[in-house]
Design a protein around this nucleic acid. Sequence first.
DNA 1: CCTCTCTAGGTACAGCGTACGTAGAAGCGC
DNA 2: GCGCTTCTACGTACGCTGTACCTAGAGAGG
Lengths: 255, 255
Amino acid sequence: MPSSKPTPSSTPAPGGSAPASSKPTPPEAPEVIWLRPERTGRGPRPAHSRDSIAAAAIGIADAEGLDAVSMRRVAAALGAGTMSLYNYVPKKEHLLDLMLDAATAEYRFPSAPSGDVRADLADLAHQQLGIFRRHPWLPALVLARPGIGPNALRYTDHFLAVTAPTGLGGSDRMEAMALINGFIAQFAQFERTAAAGAKWQSELVGYLGRAAASGEFPHLAQAFAAAGPPADPDRAFDRTLDRVISAVLMPAGDS
Amino acid sequence: MPSSKPTPSSTPAPGGSAPASSKPTPPEAPEVIWLRPERTGRGPRPAHSRDSIAAAAIGIADAEGLDAVSMRRVAAALGAGTMSLYNYVPKKEHLLDLMLDAATAEYRFPSAPSGDVRADLADLAHQQLGIFRRHPWLPALVLARPGIGPNALRYTDHFLAVTAPTGLGGSDRMEAMALINGFIAQFAQFERTAAAGAKWQSELVGYLGRAAASGEFPHLAQAFAAAGPPADPDRAFDRTLDRVISAVLMPAGDS
DNA sequence: CCTCTCTAGGTACAGCGTACGTAGAAGCGC
DNA sequence: GCGCTTCTACGTACGCTGTACCTAGAGAGG
């Protein structure tokens, strides 16, 4: 962090070009919603909060999927006019940011790491899988955008605390976090699409079977033929999670 | 509204299971587009092909992003009426499937594995990263939906061939493929969002800096303070790829 | 007190995916 | 050859989306 500059104040950068005319002074509102204050103090007090908005949106997404979350729907759920929502959330993207961070608030962190890094990481991972299963729309969101809300910061800080004993550097541990989280999100995402469509799934099996039978894909055919019954998802998760954790804790430069 | 039935068409759904009546026979078209034949042989020959449609869509996505890919735009690019496109692609989802598989056609596979598993996997990974960089919209698509087109089958078969010497089972190797591909897609995705917004990035740094300075996130602050200059992306990719490959090749049950 | 800034919300617009219907071309059975 | 059937092409229209813009009015600061 070079040149630490809190400066939340105006700083209209007066000199140089253009006296900024007279009144309409939108001096570049921040693009990141967490940089905008929730309340400035002037005018009537808002009827809603970021939390309540996020809760309403999450309720809709849980019940009817992410596509059902529209500005109109969320506003209606809050009992507000559609356009009023834009006072809280300048773009729909930011509404998604709020949802993501609100869901991240569901983590329960122990007050201190246990000292067993693998166990702590596994706990975190299982919590994450649980959250993803409670909110099936979440993996897609996590995979689509970074999103660094206050609760994500809390998570990150805890992850760094948990992995401190490994001796790895900060950026290595951040990478590790990204890798683990990515794996979990993808696992949950796959679980979701697999669960979603019985028809889709049976068609897929037919398609793969036909492909295997065509003789064009010998290795695939062999793997297909040798495949056992579908494994227990939780067991598969733990197995692969273990691999990922090992990879991440591995000292650098193994080749 | 369950009762209201405009039903302009016939289909009176006569008695019981019905002998399929006479004319309106859409006997459940497959949901997976690769299960539908591209051409049935009857009627006038189509003016376009799946390949040309995918190419048109990819052209738009490369130039203006995935959001610019609409049915209207793609149809116009083909010189066709909007609704004509629906003869080839029953839903927009399927258009995305076509795009995904067409991009997957860019892989160049050696005729046989070299015998060096790690090298072969690294080659595949670098090809994938290259494809992702050529088509910045692709990672989002890959992360969002499974998608198993003919080219994906070719890829899968090759991956299985390459990993055959490891002695791992078929489903283990499929999992390995998913894990590696997921990592690469996320890496590319991150690269893209990082490259996209200079403003966004600088705001983020400010936000993180403020968070670190708040004292609320000590570990984050420490990692932030100790962070060196941003690493070369290709080097970072290779380093983490190496870890992931190791994890994947690791014999099961290491704990 | 006035004034200025904020919030609430309505109206409106461009664009989206796609249901539906019509017109005509091309292959198949006779 | 004929005719039936099935396909392709495409215009129109509907409901929905995100959101730009505008009008009122509430409440704090001077």
